[in-house]
Design a protein around this nucleic acid. Structure first.
Lengths: 134, 134
DNA sequence: GTGTTAATGAGAATCATTATCGATTGTAGT
DNA sequence: ACTACAATCGATAATGATTCTCATTAACAC
């Protein structure tokens, strides 16, 4: 009889990736994460890091943050709609669950005849530590 | 006697690029622009397209829009702080000079001890035409 | 016109990301 | 515990966007 399996498997690598993301309060690109994991016990292949980050982001398990440079960084986030406040010096990320854009977004969209609007926003600045150091 | 020149030169290519951008109400990636210019009178080299778009964006002459895929698209925009409302079907872009985010942004930043905050926001949706077609 | 030098263009190089494919390894069923 | 088999892995080739190289071209001050 065939083993009719099609669910997501719990692999050592996926666990390592989630652990690494979960223990940090900043976002990592696939490359950075791969580098970081290489130092630990069993390194994880680069392709595997990409695969898993991509999948997890699709499933909504983690958040994808598009950097100005064009690379994608990922972060373990709380669920639900939220935005990010990112320190452009150290990369620290603060989750903002208090979204004040819905009204503005809806109003603007209506004014221009747009439907099914979604908004995407990010705040960048210097966090308390980095701002003091400057 | 040395020709002590160091300002930006008015080249045929730069003019072509600006003209192509100015005549459209949507954003183009460097590749798209290069493709489009190849059809015209004198084509413009890909490297030149990249160089000029990059420079113009730096100088603030045009706006850079980061697509979800990671590529950068450029558009001739009015000056001053503004956001974009983009149709995710046809790519049409509407400039929003009415920014309702400054207060929200400042308040959030202050709450978390951040300084020198900047915000970046984009609205995506279906424009009147594309929304009707769906 | 002439000289200087920024700008161009064809192609090589780089960087992030994705695809390939044989070797592993979870897991359900025994 | 044992087996079967597809999901996953990992090394590496391939892709796609962007940047760099360098010889050639062309703006523009004189």
């Amino acid at each position: 009889m065939p083993a009719h399996d099609q669910s997501t498997r719990r692999t050592e690598q996926r666990r390592a990736i989630l652990a690494a993301l979960g223990s940090a309060d900043r976002a990592f690109s696939a490359q950075e994460l791969h580098e970081r994991l290489r130092a630990t016990e069993h390194g994880v292949g680069l392709a595997t890091v990409y695969r898993n980050l991509g999948r997890m982001a699709e499933e909504g398990a983690i958040d994808a943050i598009l950097r100005p440079s064009g690379e994608t960084a990922y972060r373990a986030c709380g669920h639900g709609h939220h935005h990010h406040l990112i320190c452009r010096e150290c990369g620290r990320v603060v989750e903002l669950h208090d979204c004040g854009l819905s009204d503005w977004s809806r109003r603007i969209a209506a004014e221009h005849g747009f439907s099914e609007v979604e908004h995407q926003a990010e705040l960048t600045g210097l966090c308390a530590d980095c701002g003091a150091a400057a």
